[in-house]
Design a protein around this nucleic acid. Structure first.
Lengths: 127, 127
DNA sequence: TGACATATACGAAGACTTTCGTATACAATA
DNA sequence: TATTGTATACGAAAGTCTTCGTATATGTCA
């Protein structure tokens, strides 16, 4: 299995979000930031990062005493994988059905709807 | 926890899809249909349905010898829950980010894009 | 050097998911 | 009634996820 291609779990996604936002970081830095949304013990964060390193979700730089972890897959690439997974499992593989359902959550502002429309224009313009 | 509100697992979603498509069904009927996409043993399907009954994901009619199972939450309601879950976990709760990512999978036909545009029109017309 | 703070390593517990073997109950029939 | 086929019930195994306690190594400072 290619590095970074395995699907992250819930707790792993929370850690990846910290790494995507802050860039490479030590366990302590990740843990400090993570606790703002997901309070947990320091060794729990450490263990997760070690497991993620084994899985190939993050890389580890052991040069310094405090190892530095870095997300391997980009936020975009990982989100694409998660969306595709849900699309296959619950929407019969249809992006359209998933998008229609997501839009019906009524969580988007007019500005956001406008941006979606612009992407739609771009997609239709490709032909 | 209200019935049907717990998040179904992967195998449970596959079973729910059969029940949504065919309506109430016996274990044998579910299992026969399920095997087209997810080959497995009969007692595995049975056990899953029993667990789902305990969780409140399906109801069970024990009138006949072959019990009849029925999905409790609609496909729409369940999909909304799954989408919201992924939205919160990996997209910071933003429907827009999720939709933009889903559209960039390039899995939608022009007709589907047109339908998405119609829903967009309807949403913007609400104001 | 000795005490202390802080780093990683290791292992295991508890919950959950998925699978299936086996036991048991029941209906139909020769 | 004895047999056969099919139903549900039960329990357990194997894997994963999440958490954390404890052990050990290392850097710092009085």
């Amino acid at each position: 299995m290619p590095p970074g291609s395995s699907k992250p779990t819930g707790a792993e996604i929370a850690i990846l979000r910290v790494l995507w936002a802050r860039g490479p970081a030590t366990v302590r830095e990740v843990h400090h930031e993570l606790c703002r949304t997901h309070p947990t013990g320091y060794t729990t964060t450490l263990k997760l990062l070690q497991i993620m390193s084994d899985k190939g979700l993050v890389s580890r730089d052991e040069t310094e005493r405090a190892h530095v972890y870095r997300a391997i897959s980009s936020e975009e690439h990982t989100q694409l994988g998660l969306i595709s997974d849900l699309m296959d499992k619950a929407f019969g593989g249809s992006a359209q059905k998933l998008v229609l359902r997501a839009l019906s959550t009524h969580k988007s502002s007019p500005e956001e709807l406008a941006e979606i429309r612009r992407l739609l224009d771009a997609l239709e313009g490709e032909r």
